[in-house]
Simulated assay, not measured.
Amino acid sequence: MALKIAHGDGFIAALDQSGGSSPKALSAYGIGPETYSSGEEMFTLIHAMRCRVLNSPSFNSDSILGAILFEQTMNGGDGRGGPFVAALRAKGIVPFLKVDQGLEDMREGVQLMKPMTRLSKLCERARSLGVFGTKMRAVIHQANEAGIERIVRQQIDCGIQILEHGLVPILEPEVSLACPERSKAERILLELAEREIARLPADRKIIWKLTIPEQDEFYDQLAQSEKVMRVLALSGGYTRDEACKKLSHQSQMIASFSRALLEGLEVNMSAEAFDRAIGESIEQIKQASFSPA
Rank of each mutant, 00 (worst) to 15 (best):
R107S: 15
L167M: 02
A14D: 04
E104L: 14
L15G: 09
Q72Y: 02
L200Q: 00
G92F: 06
G66R: 02
L177H: 10
D216N: 08
G32K: 13
D203T: 11
A260H: 01
L3N: 01
R52L: 00
N75A: 15
A202L: 12
S258D: 08
L65N: 03
D241C: 14
R118E: 14
D203H: 10
I140Q: 04
Q154D: 07
I160A: 05
S183N: 06
N75P: 11
I93G: 01
A273L: 03
P213E: 07
A86M: 06
P201Y: 02
Q142D: 02
S176I: 04
K121Q: 15
L3G: 12
V139M: 08
K24M: 11
I207K: 00
I212C: 05
C51K: 10
R182K: 06
A277W: 13
Y29W: 07
E40S: 15
T211K: 04
W208G: 10
L210I: 04
D16K: 00
H249V: 12
T73N: 10
A48E: 15
A233Y: 02
Q72I: 12
A273I: 06
K286E: 15
Q287P: 03
R195E: 09
G236P: 03
P57Y: 06
R50P: 08
Q215S: 08
I160P: 07
F43N: 02
Q111A: 07
P23I: 13
A202T: 12
S281C: 01
A2Y: 09
Q111S: 06
P115R: 01
G159T: 06
R89G: 01
S21D: 01
Y238H: 11
I285P: 07
I278S: 08
H141K: 09
S281F: 12
I188Q: 01
E226G: 13
G79T: 10
R259A: 07
R52Q: 06
M229V: 03
D241T: 15
F96M: 03
I140S: 11
Q250Y: 07
D105V: 11
E263G: 06
S291D: 15
E242R: 03
Q284T: 07
L171V: 04
E272R: 15
D9C: 12
S22R: 11
G8M: 12
L171M: 08
S63G: 14
E283F: 05
S183D: 13
V85W: 11
I46R: 04
E149D: 09
G81Q: 06
L45E: 13
L112M: 04
Q215I: 14
F274E: 13
L69H: 11
P115A: 13
R240I: 03
H249S: 14
K245V: 11
M49V: 09
G236H: 02
G279C: 01
S291R: 07
M113P: 08
A277L: 11
S37I: 13
R199Q: 11
E34F: 15
